[in-house]
Design a protein around this nucleic acid. Structure first.
Length: 507
RNA sequence: GGCCCCAUCGUCUAGUGGUUAGGACAACAGGUUUUCAUCCUGUCAACAGGAGUUCGAUUCUCCUUGGGGUCACCA
């Protein structure tokens, strides 16, 4: 049998995500348990959001997990480059190939036209989706418009409703039925152990090549997985609904698709897909908070997976040794900090002295690294080394520890404070990023509008975010936390005040 | 809303037609520890609902309900 090859393909658009680590862990364990290769590929085709800094952080975080890739941007390999931004020529050539074979076409629709179309469809209660109007364009006309410099994207021709075509179910498993079914496409999911079928009419013509010449995820991912000889794609179940497009692409190229396995998504405690708005998701945060490697790996390995022998405590090597993809579950697990904390306690208490020393050192480095721009502000108010914790502990508090006196000191009655917090939250929501200076302007504006003394509003927000009157400079901290976390704290504070407001005032 | 995925204690899960439905975390109650933590013992706690298949359904089928994902020139 062919060598098993899996990959993790993070997009370097932010902090290393806990979900990436989770998916990576399974890909690694699966490949290694079968004596195969595990690769790392950087999917940086989003020019606007990808950064080298994020890429470096992600690699560092995955290495911290103990994962080692056989091929990747930093270690090289026979199928490189492993950074998609360095493979653009390849995608362009592949796009030409599809254009020539008639599997793809140029689309000259502007964003405005597409927005209009979507608005119209929504208004009419139709499902939104590209209507394929440029599909009818004659090749000669399209070539002409393109050579005249008109901007265009390239779209994949999906089979139309009822149109008969050769169905592809992905790798044939256990003699799965592969008969032709006109109008239906689908794939075999290795975790659900079932065919997942879609009607063609619900799948529109996906963009493959953007106007900037960069490929979309769909194209790059298919081309690279094929070029890099990936045999098994283990990814989040958020990808299930676009898999028919991917299958269609493999088919258009005449390639055999890899085996797909869609892992259940990690969830917030309200069961929504895990997000930084509701949960810490940055691996850097976990390290800085002091979660040790074995606990993190062990706990993550228990999400959606269990061992046949029922053991819950095991290390990465043991996970790999006995890994069985058939034991992956289909239900999405809620990320439970209480259990993670328990695991951390267990590993910390039981590790030997040398390891404990190394852990402390590692965690301190991670903390200092995580603090970054906040560190000088801590230094300004440092009398002792341990003051570090005093000023930064609020960052690692998962639940706010509000106390009434701190709010009372603000000098505003609860009702007004509640109103102010909500207004600030709303204003902040409009800004995708909030530099310190902008924060100040926003707060000043709100204060003026509500006829509040600016200082009172500052203190109110300060306590809402950092719990205490004595704390780091407000605006820098707001910038550091970002709109998601700040918004969350403001709402939590408002809820706290509402709950504490004198009952029976009116109603 | 269309399409798709999912459904066992509060949480993570075992279970693949016959079990007192098992374990772990949390919670609670004890014990060990001069105290605290660790550690140990115990208690509470679940098959979403309804049909069907079957001698027998947590397990198989269908429906309902609930939850989630996805419908971008982001991945």
């Amino acid at each position: 049998m062919d060598e098993v090859r899996t990959r993790i393909a993070p997009s370097p658009t932010g902090a290393p995500h806990i979900g990436t680590a989770y998916i990576a862990l399974h890909n690694y364990a699966f490949a290694k348990s079968r004596g195969g290769k595990f690769l790392l590929r950087i999917e940086d085709t989003d020019r606007a959001r990808s950064t080298l800094e994020s890429e470096a952080q992600i690699l560092r975080a995955l290495r911290w997990m103990g994962l080692q890739w056989d091929e990747g941007p930093d270690v090289g390999g026979p199928h490189g480059p492993y950074r998609q931004s360095e493979r653009t020529e390849l995608y362009r050539a592949r796009t030409q190939q599809l254009l020539k074979s008639g599997h793809a076409y140029r689309c000259f629709c502007t964003r405005e036209q597409l927005d209009e179309l979507r608005a119209l469809q929504t208004a009419r209660g139709e499902p939104p989706g590209y209507d394929g109007r440029c599909r009818k364009l004659a090749t000669a006309e399209a070539d002409g418009r393109a050579s005249r410099g008109e901007e265009f994207v390239v779209r994949l021709k999906m089979p139309r409703a009822g149109e008969a075509y050769k169905e592809v179910w992905g790798e044939d498993v256990d003699n799965e039925d592969t008969t032709l079914t006109p109008g239906i496409s689908g794939f075999f999911d290795g975790i659900r152990k079932e065919k997942v079928a879609f009607e063609n009419r619900g799948v529109d013509d996906q963009v493959l090549l953007k106007a900037d010449g960069f490929p979309t995820y769909h194209l790059a991912n298919v081309v690279d997985d094929h070029e890099m000889r990936i045999t098994h794609v283990m990814r989040g179940e958020e990808w299930i609904s676009s898999t028919p497009k991917h299958i269609r692409l493999y088919q258009a190229f005449g390639w055999t698709p890899p085996r797909f396995m869609h892992l259940p998504l990690l969830r917030n405690s309200d069961k929504s897909k895990i997000s930084k708005r509701k949960n810490p998701t940055s691996l850097s945060w976990f390290q800085a908070r002091g979660y040790c490697r074995p606990a993190t790996v062990n706990f993550l390995a228990l999400m959606g997976y269990s061992r046949a022998d029922g053991r819950e405590l095991f290390d990465l090597g043991e996970l790999v040794a006995g890994y069985d993809a058939a034991r992956l579950s289909t239900t999405a697990p809620i990320f439970d900090f209480a259990k993670l904390d328990r695991f951390n306690t267990h590993y910390l208490v039981h590790m030997d002295r040398v390891a404990f020393g190394a852990y402390q050192e590692d965690a301190l480095h991670a903390l200092l690294d995580y603090l970054g721009p906040l560190l000088p502000l801590v230094q300004e108010r440092s009398r002792m080394r341990t003051d570090l914790d005093r000023w930064t502990s609020f960052l690692f508090e998962r639940e706010p520890r509000y106390v009434e006196p701190a709010f009372r000191a603000v000098g505003l009655d609860a009702e007004l404070a509640d109103k102010a917090l909500k207004l600030v939250a709303k204003e902040l929501e409009r800004a995708p990023v909030i530099p310190a200076q902008t924060c100040r302007e926003i707060l000043d504006r709100v204060a003026e509008k509500l006829l509040f003394p600016a200082n009172s509003l500052y203190m109110l927000v300060r306590v809402a975010v950092m719990f205490e009157q004595e704390s780091l400079p407000l605006f820098e901290v707001l910038e550091f936390l970002g709109p998601d976390l700040v918004g969350r704290r403001l709402k939590e504070a408002a809820a706290f005040l509402r709950q504490r407001a004198p009952a029976g005032k009116k109603e």
